[in-house]
Amino acid sequence: MITAPAVPEGEQQTLPIASNDDVVRARQLVRTLAQQCKLSLVDQTKLVTAASELARNTLVHGNGGTMRVGLVDKGGRRGVSAVFQDTGPGIPDLELALTDGWTSGGGMGLGLSGARRLTDEFAIDTEVGRGTVVTVVKWTR
């Protein structure tokens, strides 16, 4: 998968994701940025929901990690990007993990596939034994 080049605009913030409370904080931080970026209410909700799913994956499947968020600009269009990074077990079969309803255990299996549908750009970089990086961007309409 490819990430289109997006230029960071202003400072990027990094948040640790090591507990359930951090997942809540991640949602709140993404919400604040989405408002700053003037995303529509529906788009804000979509992005925050995607972030919630991905932050939980970082915590539960990736054994914790970080979220880096910030405003981005591409050819005059503004957006919010969020990068979820962990050094956990990685995803052995990405296609399977992206299938609606597939979970390696305990979940609903809608986090990854849902987050892809809820955002405008979605990229995964994963390696077994090394960890996983998921990048999403939501652009203003």
Binding site: T49, L110, R117
Partner: peptide, 13 residues
Amino acid sequence: RPAVAITLVELGL
């Protein structure tokens, strides 16, 4: 809320 409902449908629930 409407925005929540729209998002939930897109999420697949």
